[in-house]
Amino acid sequence: MGEIRLVGTAHVSEKSVAEVRAAIEEFQPGIVGVELDPGRYNALRHEQAPPKVEDVLKAGNFSQLLFQWTLAYLQRKIGMDVGVEPGAEMVAAIEEVEGRGLPLALIDRDIRITLARFWEGMSLWEKVKMVYALALSVGGVEGDEIDIDALTRQDVVSAALDEFRKFSPNGARALIDERDAYLARRILDLSGRYDRVMAVIGAGHVRGVERYLSSPELLPPEADLVARPKSYPWGTIVGGAFIAMFAFLIISLAFSGVGFEVLGWAILYWVLINGVLAAVFTLAAGGHPLSAATAFAVAWLTSLNPLMAAGWFAAAVEAKVRKPSASDFQRIMDAEDFSQMRKVPIFRVVLVAALANVGSTLGTIAYFAFISPILGIDPTVIIPMGFSNFIGWLGGLFSF
Results as ranks from 00 to 15, higher is better:
24 I>F: 11
300 W>T: 06
99 G>F: 00
69 W>C: 00
170 N>P: 07
203 A>V: 02
178 E>F: 08
85 E>N: 01
254 A>I: 00
333 M>K: 14
83 G>F: 04
129 K>W: 02
291 S>L: 08
104 L>M: 07
274 N>S: 15
141 V>Y: 13
101 G>S: 07
216 P>H: 12
207 R>N: 07
348 R>S: 15
337 D>F: 06
23 A>F: 15
120 E>I: 12
340 Q>F: 08
249 L>G: 02
286 G>H: 05
382 I>D: 11
20 V>W: 14
182 Y>M: 04
394 L>V: 13
268 L>T: 08
5 R>T: 00
117 R>E: 06
298 V>S: 11
20 V>H: 12
7 V>Y: 15
239 G>Y: 05
223 A>W: 10
391 I>F: 10
330 Q>K: 13
197 V>H: 07
274 N>G: 15
266 A>K: 08
154 Q>L: 14
57 L>E: 05
13 S>P: 05
180 D>N: 15
271 V>I: 15
163 E>S: 13
189 D>A: 10
115 L>K: 10
38 P>L: 02
292 A>G: 08
41 Y>F: 15
17 V>Q: 03
25 E>S: 11
80 M>I: 10
224 D>N: 11
16 S>R: 01
164 F>C: 03
367 Y>C: 04
63 S>I: 00
359 G>M: 04
351 L>D: 01
107 I>L: 08
89 E>C: 03
108 D>G: 05
382 I>T: 07
179 R>W: 09
10 A>L: 08
279 A>V: 01
15 K>H: 09
303 S>L: 07
34 V>A: 01
125 W>M: 11
284 A>I: 07
40 R>P: 00
173 R>Y: 12
248 F>N: 05
329 F>G: 01
366 A>H: 10
270 W>T: 06
99 G>N: 10
207 R>C: 01
100 R>T: 01
186 R>K: 13
205 H>S: 05
188 L>T: 05
261 E>T: 14
227 A>Q: 13
50 P>K: 04
293 A>N: 03
166 K>L: 09
139 G>K: 12
257 G>E: 12
374 I>T: 09
367 Y>G: 04
175 L>I: 02
175 L>F: 11
12 V>P: 03
15 K>W: 03
176 I>D: 06
255 F>D: 10
167 F>K: 11
265 W>T: 01
270 W>F: 06
298 V>H: 11
279 A>R: 01
193 R>N: 04
132 Y>V: 08
25 E>F: 07
11 H>Q: 04
148 I>V: 14
358 V>T: 12
46 H>W: 06
143 G>S: 07
279 A>T: 01
162 D>H: 10
265 W>I: 08
11 H>K: 03
258 V>W: 09
168 S>W: 02
276 V>N: 09
345 P>A: 11
25 E>T: 08
270 W>Q: 05
310 A>I: 03
41 Y>S: 02
306 P>D: 08
171 G>S: 07
120 E>T: 13
223 A>C: 01
208 G>N: 11
46 H>M: 12
329 F>S: 01
218 L>P: 02
380 T>V: 09
98 E>T: 07
156 V>P: 00
129 K>H: 05
359 G>L: 09
51 P>F: 13
37 D>I: 11
398 F>Y: 13
361 T>V: 07
9 T>H: 14
366 A>S: 15
209 V>H: 07
306 P>K: 03
212 Y>W: 07
259 G>K: 06
292 A>T: 04
117 R>P: 02
208 G>Q: 03
